[in-house]
Nucleic acid binder design. Structure first.
Length: 904
RNA sequence: GGGCGGGUAGCUCAGUGGGGAGAGCAUCGGCCUUACAAGCCGGGGGUCACAGGUUCGAGCCCUGUUCCGCCUACCA
């Protein structure tokens, strides 16, 4: 990858692996906690150790990488701290499946051996996602890579548990929780996904013992009737008021159960009568407490009907039982009717099985106080959520937060540091295992078999990854972190909990800002998922189009507050942009190959272009491109500082392609080829310098091609682009005059091309052009740049004259540009009809515009109330349009005259 | 039920203090012009969902309607 002319094609695969290895070898991602630079830090949202890089990761990490690379270029001490999450249930499930394939079960192999298996699995496959992140170009400091089950992080978890327990913020209690019968563990409320199901509402008759009358209840879960211990009605409901206090017979079972009154019951829903199953429903459990009802558990932890469900149901699967019950109720005439019904049913977020509400002894975090602090920190602006609309959801969630169930009945995870004495039943919570019960000398204690919710360890991530509970230099330098970059789907799972824990244990927010980015969806707006089969695999995309193209595509679509609809074609499209960069570089470097002189940009005095630089006066195109470069640099900073990633991508795309390539390089080609007046070094210097700056500006989003081309530039002498100086915008190079003049010049050229195109003149054919100017300034401008006009407009003979000094060419198509008239002479080929219709079309457009300005200017209210500048602008526009229209009208008259004379 | 976001060119979307409707892709026409056909040059295409309102002026602000998407909730 040496200097010199570039190969014809850009070989991204080779380049990407080469440079990534180089960066790692040179430790360019490593942060120095002792460094003097200002810190900028991000902790990665740790991917599951079982994870495969999906498109969401690709977006998330591309954005983080952009920020990190950008901040490095701007002189910050950047730490992007990476790692993976042990993902308790998910990982356990993966290894269980693996065991299953071998005909084994986790209970069969036993706890210790199973956990050993998981570690082996992790050693073997845990690095996959990390390598995929590297493939993406992620500039994480891998020397600081952590895993949530590392020794240090495990210590942090225990420390947190013990502290919260001692502070009374962790407690153990028997409560109603969500239970996954597949994973065989408790879940936190947030880990339950409500999925809408097409189901049925079943109406079941509960007769009165007297035989006279009955109550009909409506339910979606008929199998739970086996555990009913009451029927509830609304006490205000006159239909049922008389039943309150009486008993009804539970069909099939034959048990008498009371009818109770409670305002919780909705009169309008179903029949207005509700069957109460306290052991299997959150609300029914509430009623049970309030009305002192019995509690009958008919479904067990595996989702199997219990003995209490009675024959023949005991031992049946809960769904099989539902079918059987319906059959039986139907037979006995208790099933009144069945109607289709759509409702939401809780599913395990890991295995998607239907969860069961269950009464269970679990550990909880009391969240009220922690949540309050997390709310206040955002309200006080200590942490800013961007875009701000997410703050509302954040507040809302925290305000309604219930206690967090943190114990899981699985084996893979941080074991709960609680021990029980079988003799005195005391609970000992401590960092290390106690040798014996402190109350009962000699009594061995047993550790709680459960492990902690994965999200508990994740909630410590911003400080545990930096070494807490030790007082480390990393914590000192990099906590609080600068920003957390995440999708909204883990705002509550993770972000809110990090806020709570950070504030509790560090007494300081974990991050100054939270940037919430979009979700990547497919082209139809559907969430990407394997089951839908609509996933775009980022690895495949990198294989096909290169990492830079994928990153650029994601970035270009990362507008705030909107989901991304991604399709493969768009990624492919940005491969063209990568190609464009490569070819622009080829052109420049081709001409630098034999370039002896130093590549240099003149120093920037107050007005650099007014000084004679040893015979080299900076020409218009150079002044213009350098001026535009300053603005683009400023826009880059503005975009990235505000997380307008799409704007960042688009500004650079536009600048490189449509200004630098389409105009600047085209204009200086004669110089590069040694034919122009300004021949030589200056054009090469400016072209190379601007290219170099563009590469730096693009580097955050396209790290690979920028580094590769950078090294081919003659003056970078082996230095990495990662250590280049960021091209801060320099006001003294901003040159409004050059911008204005270039615009005029470009407008003239576009006018010529436009006529050629519309009149179907072959690009191979050079034409004669006349430009008639009113103003001296424009006349001079065109004269100075006549060779450029001739080159880019493909002009054989260019006449530039003061209006009125020469006659307007007769057999020509014309256009009005600013105060000038541009004519393309088409002596033999002019088609009067098409030219006249072209002019008419143009006229119609202008007249419509004129009508609008005219209406505004004849409106007194407008003249009185609008700001002066706006009125002035409108007046100028009015005059300009009027003149243009006059000219076109005259032109049209001539055209018509010519047509008649030719016809005659 | 509540909340949020969206409806702008054929498609996907920008439009971040109200003041001339934009881009990319697609499409059409013309070009192998020695960086690039993965390219160059040019063209066409929009009642900014609908209806009101505020304003001299609304894609943008307000109200209502409608369609789509998402999030949330204890009507079983």
């Amino acid at each position: 990858m040496s200097e010199g002319a570039l190969p014809k094609g850009y070989e991204f695969a080779e380049v990407e692996s080469h440079w990534y290895n180089h960066w790692e070898k040179e430790s360019l991602f490593r942060a120095d906690a002792m460094g003097q630079k200002l810190p900028y830090s991000i902790v990665i949202p740790p991917p599951n150790v079982t994870g495969q890089l999906h498109i969401g990761h690709a977006l998330n990490n591309t954005l983080q990488d952009i920020l990190c690379r950008y901040k490095r270029l701007r002189g910050f001490e950047v730490l992007w701290a990476p790692g993976t999450d042990h993902a308790g249930i998910a990982t356990q499930n993966v290894v269980e499946r693996q065991l299953g394939a071998e005909g084994l079960t986790r209970h069969g192999v036993g706890r210790e051996a199973f956990v050993q298996r998981v570690w082996e699995w992790k050693a073997r496959y845990g690095g996959i996602i990390i390598n995929q992140l590297k493939r993406l170009g992620a500039s994480c400091d891998w020397s600081r890579e952590r895993f949530t089950m590392d020794e240090g992080l495990s210590t942090a978890v225990r420390q947190v548990f013990v502290s919260l327990y001692e502070a009374g913020l962790i407690y153990r209690g028997r409560r109603m929780i969500n239970w996954c019968p597949r994973c065989m563990t408790a879940l936190a409320n947030i880990e339950v996904d409500g999925e809408e199901l097409d189901s049925f509402l079943y109406y079941i008759r509960y007769p009165l013992p007297s035989g006279k009358g009955s109550l009909v209840v409506a339910t979606t879960r008929p199998e739970t009737m086996l555990g009913d211990t009451a029927v509830a009605v609304n006490p205000e409901d006159h239909r049922y008021r008389a039943y309150i206090g009486q008993k009804v017979i539970l069909p099939i079972v034959g048990r008498n159960i009371p009818v109770i009154g409670d305002p919780y019951v909705e009169r309008e829903f179903g029949t207005g009568a509700l069957k109460v199953t306290p052991a299997h429903d959150f609300n029914d459990f509430e009623l049970c407490g309030k009305h002192h009802l019995e509690l009958v558990q008919v479904i067990d932890e595996r989702g199997i009907m219990t003995e209490q469900a009675g024959r023949p149901y005991a031992g049946m699967d809960r769904f099989a039982c539902r079918k059987q019950i319906l059959k039986d109720l139907n037979k006995s005439g208790h099933l009144v009717k069945t109607e289709p019904y759509k409702h939401r049913v809780g599913h395990c977020y890991r295995c998607h099985n239907v969860v069961e509400p269950m009464l269970s002894l679990q550990w909880f975090v009391a969240t009220r106080g922690l949540a309050q602090a997390a709310i206040e920190a955002v309200k006080e602006g200590k942490t800013r959520i961007i875009p701000a609309k997410w703050e509302k959801d954040y507040f809302n969630w925290l305000e309604n937060l219930e206690d967090w169930c943190i114990s899981r009945q699985i084996w893979w995870g941080h074991r709960i540091p609680a021990w029980y004495c079988p003799k005195c039943n005391d609970v000992i919570v401590s960092m290390e295992a106690p040798k014996e019960c402190p109350n009962c000398p000699g009594a061995a204690v047993e550790q709680d078999p459960d492990v902690l919710d994965t999200w508990l360890s994740s909630s410590l991530w911003p400080f545990s990854i930096l070494g807490w509970p030790d007082k480390t230099l990393d914590l000192e330098k990099f906590y609080p972190t600068s920003v957390l970059v995440t999708a909204f789907d883990i705002l509550f799972f993770w972000v809110a909990r990090m806020m709570m824990m950070g504030l509790e244990f560090m007494k300081e927010v974990p991050f100054r800002q939270v940037y919430v980015h979009a979700l990547v969806r497919d082209a139809e707006g559907q969430k990407m998922s394997k089951s839908r089969g609509n996933v775009i695999d980022p690895l495949l995309m990198m294989d096909k189009y290169g990492t830079d193209a994928l990153r650029f595509a994601l970035t270009a679509f990362a507008a705030q507050g909107r989901d991304i609809r991604l399709s493969e074609e768009r990624i492919e499209g940005y491969k063209h942009f990568v190609n464009k960069i490569w070819n622009a570089a080829r052109l420049v470097l081709m001409n630098l190959a034999d370039f002896e002189g130093p590549v240099r940009l003149p120093e920037a005095p107050a007005k650099p272009w007014e000084k004679d630089r040893g015979g080299e006066v900076l020409g218009l195109a150079h002044r213009w491109i350098l001026s535009r470069l300053q603005r683009v640099a400023a826009e880059t900073v503005e975009s990235l500082d505000n997380y307008y990633f799409n704007q960042y991508a688009q500004v650079l795309y536009q600048f490189l392609w449509h200004e630098y390539c389409d105009w600047y390089l085209e204009i200086i080609k004669p110089d590069l080829y040694g034919r122009g007046a300004d021949a030589g070094d200056l054009a090469r210097s400016v072209a190379a310098v601007v290219l170099e700056k563009i590469l730096i500006l693009l580097h955050p989003v396209m790290p690979f091609i920028t580094e590769e081309v950078w090294h081919r530039l003659p003056h970078t002498s082996g230095m990495t682009i990662m250590k280049a100086a960021f091209p801060e915008a320099q006001a003294e190079w901003i040159d409004p005059e050059a911008e204005e003049q270039m615009e005029t010049l470009m407008a003239v050229i576009v006018a010529i091309r436009n006529i050629r195109g519309e009149m179907n003149v072959s690009p191979a054919l050079k034409v004669e052009v006349a430009c008639l100017c009113v103003q001296d300034a424009e006349l001079d401008l065109l004269k100075v740049h006549q060779s450029t006009i001739a080159d880019l407009g493909k002009v054989s003979k260019l006449t530039i004259a003061k209006a009125g000094k020469i006659a307007k060419p007769r057999y020509a198509a014309g256009a009005v540009v600013r105060n000038m008239e541009v004519f393309v002479v088409l002596k033999d080929i002019l088609d009067f009809d098409s030219e006249s219709s072209r002019l008419q079309k143009e006229l119609a457009k202008l007249e419509k515009e004129l009508g609008l300005t005219h209406r505004k200017l004849s409106n007194d209210d407008f003249l009185q109330k609008a700001p002066h500048e706006v009125i002035e602008k409108e007046r100028e526009k009015n005059v300009r349009l009027g003149e243009k229209i006059d000219k076109l009208n005259r032109r049209l008259e001539i055209m018509n005259g010519l047509r008649e004379s030719r016809a005659g």
